[in-house]
Design a protein around this nucleic acid. Structure first.
Lengths: 260, 260
DNA sequence: AAATAGATTCGAGTAACTCGAATGCAGAGT
DNA sequence: ACTCTGCATTCGAGTTACTCGAATCTATTT
């Protein structure tokens, strides 16, 4: 190939970083790393040397490669500068007051949601979740809220892939399509233990200027103390917030098509 | 030059990422980016194209470059896998119970601390802080706790640099040296509004197998409700925790030299 | 002490990179 | 409406810095 328009080295380097990321808690050796990324050991070594020096990767006591703290530093910077997060923060806090439950903010990345903020409820039973965690679209409140507003081409593309059935209540196929219709009509989505048993959520999408959903927020709680009715009760306020946040980041009002 | 042992491309790519990070909230243009990194615009463009595709960078509505969510995803993974963080978590939670105040965990990176975990107190006045944030060593409780245990060569190297005076109470020079002696003797450090006015902290270091401090934790609170005496009262428990956490990650017991 | 597994270095060959200049594009100013 | 300005993007020539396998080194295991 001729001089393409992107850098092979940079691509490879991040392939290595992702390989380390995927390796998980035990770390990974140089050989395995090279293998996963499909490059020679010596080449991998060269990249890894730079990545180590930069603090993007690290080595543990056993010599295995791990992710490094530079990622934390950069992520911290990202969070500081993120406009969506800044715009949403006060609303999320208000929503925690209102509901007494934990609230999350996520952004749409490819075919997944990435959690970028969380405001925890004071209640002691805390849902385990992390900033940086990813979740599928089809079985979460945030995801369904965004799917319902996504252009049909993009939506169909996502739905045509394999959809993981995570609990007995996870919707797929036509049932999911019907559900997305309901979501579009009512202006919010409910995850009724579809992603994780015992957890119920309400989610609403946030839109940008071109009318695309870019993120969403949700209220999550143990199903035992957070009924579908509770979700519906929370919805009007939450819908106003979704509109406000969207406006703040220069976007449109979501869910306008049905203004009931 | 001959084939060096690291990759120039990877170094440059991260130089660009850091340049974007430093640019802050307003983002940065391609030209400025190339300038800061000291490379040609066309070369910068090539790298940036890859970084955009990888989601490491992003462009805002105005076309300026920003940090991208891939950093969040990787940071989330890092936090999930971090052994120190996992080892410390239960102790941090206990310390929050015990003190009723916010507790942080940090790691030593170069001449700074990077915050990698935080457990918030239930009290409403929350100290503003972020995971990924960096702080200097000489004027924080965590930093002083680590400085006191650092090899003298390394410590002198750090202390010989310019030390920012952040508040009227910030210690430098001989006063700081004397303070570090006290810290080494008593086995914990107090930040008495030296980093930020109105905030007092107690900090303790965590050590690895080679006897080097690798991280630290601290309890932070508004000075008004958290006296120096409160710090001293908390110290024995906290010192036991520091020893336990150090042991859990395969390290030595810190502060052995004085075993009062 | 030998064997194994992995990390690191080496050197030849060339793919992929770097740079400046030219072109393309969009918004500001007249 | 037209030009100007600033920035992004593409292009092509020249060559640097990369890629690979093999050899060497290091640490751990048998």
């Amino acid at each position: 190939m001729q001089s393409g328009r992107k850098s092979a080295s940079v691509d490879k380097a991040f392939e290595l970083v992702h390989a380390v990321s995927d390796a998980g808690r035990d770390g990974i050796t140089l050989g395995a790393l090279a293998n996963r990324a499909g490059i020679a050991v010596s080449t991998a070594h060269r990249y890894v040397t730079s990545l180590l020096e930069l603090g993007v990767l690290d080595r543990d006591a056993a010599g295995s490669y791990r992710l490094g703290v530079t990622l934390i530093v950069l992520a911290g910077q990202y969070l500081d500068e993120d406009g969506l997060r800044a715009a949403a923060r006060p609303y999320l806090a208000e929503l925690v007051e209102l509901s007494g439950e934990t609230v999350h903010l996520g952004v749409l990345v490819g075919e997944q949601i990435v959690y970028v903020d969380k405001v925890e409820s004071a209640k002691s039973i805390r849902l385990v979740s992390h900033i940086g965690k990813r979740a599928p679209l089809h079985c979460t409140a945030m995801g369904k809220a965004m799917l319902a507003l996504l252009g049909s081409a993009r939506r169909d593309e996502i739905l045509s892939g394999p959809l993981e059935v995570r609990t007995p209540k996870t919707l797929t196929g036509n049932a999911l399509l019907a559900e997305l219709g309901v979501v579009a009509d009512q202006g919010f989505a409910i995850d009724d233990e579809e992603n994780e048993e015992g957890v119920r959520c309400v989610g609403l999408a946030i839109m940008n200027a071109s009318g695309e959903p870019v993120g969403a927020f949700s209220v999550s709680a143990p199903a035992a103390r957070f009924s579908r009715d509770d979700c519906h009760r929370l919805a009007p306020k939450a819908r106003a917030m979704a509109a406000d946040i969207s406006k703040r980041i220069g976007g449109r009002t979501p869910y306008r098509r049905s203004s009931k």
